[in-house]
Structure formats: structure tokens, C-alpha cells
Lab assay of single mutants.
Amino acid sequence: MTYKLILNGKTLKGETTTEAVDAATAEKVFKQYANDNGSDGEWTYDDATKTFTVTE
């Protein structure tokens, strides 16, 4: 399945997607991506749209 990440950071904004077997796997990928790019904030997940959002 395709999962989407929306970044609403102070310095990093945008979207990216990943293919993953489940939401937990996608979350690990996205959290590593956000960490690698210095983005940290409040995470939410919408199962209906398969979208993670991180807001700083």
C-alpha cells in the first residue's frame, strides 16, 4: 500500500510517499525520514487516507 507523509515543519515542509506492508512499517520509514531532515513534532495518522502528518 502507498502511505503519504505531510510535513508541516518550521523549516521543512512538503509531502512524500512510501510503499509499505502496513501503517506501522510506513511510520518507521517516515519517522526516520523526518529525523534525518531535522523535523520533530506532533504526529497524527488518518487511516482512511493512509496519511501521516507531522506538525512542528
Results as ranks from 00 to 15, higher is better:
E19A: 07
E27V: 05
E19N: 12
A20E: 03
Y33W: 14
N37V: 14
K31L: 06
M1C: 14
S39D: 05
T53Q: 05
V21D: 09
E27Q: 11
K31G: 02
G9V: 10
K10R: 12
T44V: 09
F30K: 00
F30I: 00
M1I: 14
T49Y: 04
F52N: 00
V54Y: 11
T16C: 15
G9K: 06
A34W: 12
V21M: 12
D40G: 10
L12P: 06
L5S: 01
E19W: 15
Q32A: 12
K4S: 05
F52L: 01
D46C: 09
Y33D: 01
K4W: 11
E56T: 09
A48N: 10
K31M: 08
M1H: 14
I6V: 10
T17A: 06
V29R: 08
A23V: 11
D22M: 02
D47M: 07
L5K: 01
E19G: 04
K50A: 05
S39K: 09
L12C: 15
E56R: 05
T53W: 08
K50F: 08
D46L: 03
T11Y: 13
N35Q: 14
V21Q: 11
K4M: 07
T2C: 13
V21H: 11
A23T: 07
E15P: 05
V29P: 01
I6A: 03
L12T: 11
T2D: 04
D36L: 12
S39H: 15
E15Q: 10
Y45T: 00
D47S: 11
A34I: 12
G9I: 10
K10V: 13
T18S: 04
V21P: 15
T55P: 01
D36F: 12
S39F: 15
G14T: 14
G14V: 15
K50C: 05
V54C: 10
G41W: 15
A34Y: 08
G38N: 10
K31D: 01
W43R: 00
N35R: 15
K31H: 07
A20V: 04
N8Q: 11
Y45G: 00
T53I: 07
L5I: 03
L5Q: 01
E42G: 05
D36M: 12
T55Q: 07
D22E: 03
E15N: 06
D40Q: 13
S39A: 15
L5F: 05
T18R: 04
G14Q: 13
E27R: 09
N8F: 13
A26Y: 01
K50Q: 08
F30Y: 01
A20C: 07
E15A: 08
D46H: 05
V54Q: 03
K28I: 09
T44G: 06
A34V: 15
N37L: 15
T25K: 05
T51F: 01
T2S: 06
D40V: 14
K4C: 07
Y45E: 00
A20W: 02
G9F: 15
N37W: 14
T49M: 05
G9C: 14
I6E: 03
